[in-house]
C-alpha cells in the first residue's frame, strides 16, 4: 500500500500542523522520516491520500512551513 508523508523544516512546524489536524478531525500518524525521503533524522506526518487537499489547504491557511508532500510506493 502507498504511504503518504509530510516532511517539515522543524518539529515545531510538524507539531503545529498536528494540532490543526486533530482539531479538524483528520486522521494522521506521526512517524520517523523514512530514509528514502530524507537523510535527516526527525518526525514526519503520515496521512491518507483522500485528505491531501484538505491538509494542503490547512497548511496554506496557517502558513505551516513544510518541506513537501511525498508518496512512497509500498
Amino acid at each position: 500500500m502507498d504511504k503518504n508523508y509530510i516532511l517539515f523544516k522543524s518539529y515545531n512546524q510538524g507539531l503545529a500542523l498536528e494540532s490543526l489536524l486533530k482539531k479538524s478531525k483528520i486522521k494522521y500518524t506521526i512517524s520517523p522520516t523514512p530514509r528514502q525521503l530524507s537523510v535527516c533524522c526527525g518526525m514526519s506526518i503520515m496521512y491518507y491520500k483522500e485528505d491531501e487537499d484538505n491538509i494542503k489547504k490547512i497548511v496554506k491557511e496557517n502558513n505551516i512551513k513544510v518541506l513537501g508532500f511525498y508518496t512512497l510506493n509500498g
Binding site: Y11, T29, P32, P34, R35, G42
Partner: peptide
C-alpha cells in the same frame, strides 16, 4: 525508521495518544 515502522506503526487500531510517543522516537 524502518524498524519502527515495521514493529510499531504496522499495529492495528493503536490509540491516538501513541502519536506523542511516535514523536519522541522520531526525534
Amino acid at each position: 525508521p524502518e524498524i519502527y515502522s515495521k514493529v510499531y506503526l504496522s499495529q492495528n487500531d493503536r490509540p491516538e495518544g501513541m502519536n506523542y510517543f511516535n514523536f519522541v522516537v522520531s526525534e
